[in-house]
């Protein structure tokens, strides 16, 4: 167990370093930050001077080395746009993204799993066919269009829900939450639905596929032969066996939800990390871009690590296999 854990940890660090390197290499090509940092009347000499002070003229590996050393200490430098430490900005924006992602994940799971189970059990029923087809709409329209259509309908025409932002938030220490005010909850609804749609479709289809597989297996057939009630077979036996792979995927998808929030946050002006990232890309705010990518990688690596360990604990068969193949 210990050696497995250490091995995984080392691999994770390697993953993080690679991500950092790639992320960093990419940013050299996204544009020149200087022009967004000064006004139109700033002279060329001052611009060149600023570029030098920011170290943008240093050789690539000098810049990268500086970045890694600082990042390891949780320092991502000062944002060009906000002129504040990036770590501070991320701490400020993270609650918004995490609350939105959490609610979306809950929505996607709470709706996706029952629908998946239903469509698997009643494979040829008209309702499950309808579910299957309808759910596809969630992945047939681009997220941004769904978001804008929702705003148009519920924000502008019906005026039931706020069109942008988080509403009133309450500070609990460094965490800001929108769950405690009425306007905060109302503001969450549309972005959460927009973000959940895609994952919901994915989870539903996944559960259905896994469930269908399990229902065909011998032990379910034996169960039926022994005369166990359908309900018992479906929920006690089949669903339980479906859950292991489903949990893995859901775990991985949680990371994806946070990253996917980029588009939803942009459409709804949701003050989270994704919106900050998109703005940073536009303004070539390199410190924010780099920090965001490293954050996403970190979240993913942690989720991955947990999922792996859960597997290790849950399924003894994997221990041998894992140890033998080294991953």
């Amino acid at each position: 167990m210990i050696s497995f854990l250490i091995k995984r940890l080392l691999q994770s660090i390697l993953v993080m370093l690679t991500v950092a390197l790639i992320a960093f290499a990419l940013f050299r090509y996204v544009g020149d930050p200087i022009n967004n940092m000064v006004g139109q009347d700033t002279t060329l000499e001052e611009r060149a001077d600023l570029r030098e002070r920011l170290g943008l003229d240093d050789p690539f590996f000098v810049q990268f080395g500086r970045f890694v050393v600082n990042a390891a200490q949780g320092e991502f430098g000062i944002s060009y746009q906000h002129r504040r430490p990036v770590s501070e900005l991320i701490a400020e924006r993270a609650p918004a993204t995490l609350e939105l992602s959490l609610l979306s994940a809950i929505l996607a799971i709470a709706i996706g799993i029952p629908m998946g189970v239903y469509t698997a059990i009643h494979r040829d029923g008209w309702l499950s066919r309808a579910f299957m087809s309808l759910s596809l709409i969630g992945i047939s329209l681009p997220t941004f269009l769904i978001g804008i259509l929702l705003i148009l309908l519920f924000g502008v025409i019906l005026r039931w829900l706020p069109t942008f932002g988080r509403g009133e938030v309450v500070q609990l220490g460094w965490w800001s939450t929108g769950f405690l005010t009425w306007s905060g909850i109302k503001a969450l609804i549309m972005p959460a639905i927009t973000l959940a749609l895609f994952q919901m479709t994915l989870i539903m289809r996944l559960v259905r596929a896994e469930m269908l597989e399990v229902l065909r297996t011998d032990f379910v057939k034996f169960g039926r032969a022994r005369g166990l009630p359908d309900r018992y077979i479906h929920f006690k036996t089949a669903l339980k066996n479906t859950m292991v792979p489903v949990i893995t995927i859901i775990g991985l998808q949680l990371g994806a939800i946070i990253a996917f929030a980029i588009i939803t946050e942009t459409v709804f002006q949701w003050p989270g990390m994704g919106l900050m990232f998109i703005q940073a890309v536009r303004e070539v705010d390199i410190p924010i871009m780099a920090a965001y990518l490293v954050m996403i990688a970190l979240i993913f690596v942690i989720i991955n690590l947990i999922v792996d360990m859960l597997y290790y604990v849950v399924d003894p068969r994997l221990r041998v296999d894992r140890a033998a193949t080294g991953h």
């Binding site: 991500v19 090509y29 991985l252 980029i262 990518l293 993913f300 991955n304």
Partner: peptide, 28 residues
């Protein structure tokens, strides 16, 4: 191990993000 590790790294980022960044780099 190497190939699967690269796959892991890549899975850490959603397709949109990767596509966006690759696009930026290649253009650069």
């Amino acid at each position: 191990a190497i190939i699967m590790r690269i796959a892991d790294v890549q899975l850490a980022f959603p397709a949109i993000l990767i596509a966006m960044l690759i696009d930026g780099v290649v253009r650069g």
